Amino acid sequence: MTVRAVEVIAEADVVAYHSARHGRSIARSIAAAHIRPDHVEEALVYPVTTETTDHPGGYRGALEEFYAEAAARLAAHLDAGRTVAVLAEGDPLFYGSYMHMHKRLADRYPTEVVPGVTSVSAAAARLGTPLVEGEEVLTILPGTLPEEELTARLAATDSAVVMKLGRTFPAVRR
């Protein structure tokens, strides 16, 4: 965590974080030492993650509805004069769940996005291995791309990071 992230959490009245239905949040676990007993916690629990849904709008519809409801919950705190810190894994605007709250709230409330350490940078630092050097090109790809497109893009770069592996790992590995 950055020093600024720790400061923002300390100044906040409400600490919000995304989680799957099991209730565990990686972002919250990273920040746990900085969450006080008097913080109001808002767990933004996804209705679906990778499974199918019977929502009339399908998977995308279920998520859009969830993001709208989650933003409304945070807006209620902000309207009441409370400050809200939304925790994010890595950087909040790099494949992060926070971006969906930001799109819905930043035009109505003062917002500070605190840059974070991406998993890409953290992994390289942990390994002590540069991602790229000199004129090499680094490409970051979502593992959710169709296999043919992922194959083509991987062939066209010097170094690559594939994000969002989870259920896509077998296809990415192929």
Rank of each mutant, 00 (worst) to 15 (best):
V161W: 08
P142C: 06
P115H: 08
L150H: 08
V114D: 05
L141D: 04
P110I: 05
Y98I: 07
R104C: 03
F94Q: 03
E136Y: 11
I140T: 02
R153F: 04
D158K: 08
A160G: 06
L131I: 11
D107W: 14
T118D: 01
T151W: 12
P146N: 06
E89Q: 13
A122V: 03
R153Q: 11
L141T: 03
Y98S: 02
H102Q: 10
A88H: 07
P92T: 07
V137Q: 15
L141W: 02
A106N: 03
S121F: 14
A156G: 10
T139E: 08
A125F: 03
H102I: 04
E89N: 12
V132R: 09
A124K: 10
T144W: 09
K103H: 15
L131C: 06
V162T: 04
E148Q: 14
G128H: 11
F94E: 00
S97N: 13
E136D: 05
G96K: 02
L131D: 02
E136C: 09
H100M: 10
L131P: 07
E133F: 11
V137F: 14
E89A: 12
L154R: 09
M163H: 07
V117Y: 03
P130V: 07
L154E: 07
R108S: 12
A152C: 13
A123M: 13
K164Y: 03
F94V: 15
R126Y: 14
S119H: 01
R108H: 13
T151K: 15
L165D: 01
L138R: 11
G128M: 13
E135I: 10
G128A: 10
S119P: 02
L141F: 05
L165H: 03
I140H: 00
V114A: 03
T118W: 10
E149G: 12
E148Y: 10
M101K: 08
V162K: 00
L127F: 14
L141Y: 02
A152Y: 12
A152N: 13
V161T: 07
T151C: 12
L105K: 08
V114K: 05
E136P: 01
M163E: 04
L105H: 02
P142G: 06
V113G: 08
E89V: 13
A88E: 04
L150A: 01
L93N: 03
E133C: 14
T129F: 14
D91W: 00
L138K: 11
H100Y: 15
M101P: 09
E147D: 09
V117P: 08
A122F: 01
H100Q: 11
